[in-house]
Design a binder for these strands. Structure first.
Length: 108
DNA sequence: AGCGTGACGAACT
DNA sequence: TAGTTCGCCACGC
């Protein structure tokens, strides 16, 4: 477990239920430009319900990937349970459910 | 210290 | 429009 991963998991924990975020948003939140690093950190181990990693999707609005049980299918299932439905492998109203870590003090 | 890999992203052809 | 390539940062070897 690396500090970087802890930051990532903590960020995912900020995602409100019924919403989704993107790897890029998490990367920006952590202050990094490498979404790869975020994706790597998330895909490393926290596939467990320990972290709402299923609320994280690529900027394309697609489901992306999931290392948990059932893979992407389970990821979709979890999102539907929260109210985030999928269509053709993509999120419905993706930008509306999108959570971009709207900091209360982003530029003060 | 360097190389390869990875739950992505953007640009190019 | 779809497929492919490079880049990006962190981690393991």
């Amino acid at each position: 477990m690396t500090p970087f991963q802890q930051e990532v998991y903590k960020a995912l924990d900020l995602i409100p239920k019924g919403c989704v975020t993107t790897y890029g948003a998490v990367a920006a939140y952590l202050g990094t430009k490498a979404v790869r690093a975020v994706g790597t950190a998330v895909g490393k181990n926290p596939n467990a319900p320990q972290v709402p990693c299923h609320r994280v999707v690529p900027l394309t609005g697609k489901i992306g990937n999931y290392s948990g049980q059932g893979g992407v299918a389970t990821k979709i299932r979890l999102l539907e349970e929260e109210g985030v439905f999928l269509k053709n492998g993509k999120v419905l109203d993706f930008e509306k459910c999108l959570f971009t870590f709207d900091h209360p003090t982003e530029h003060v």
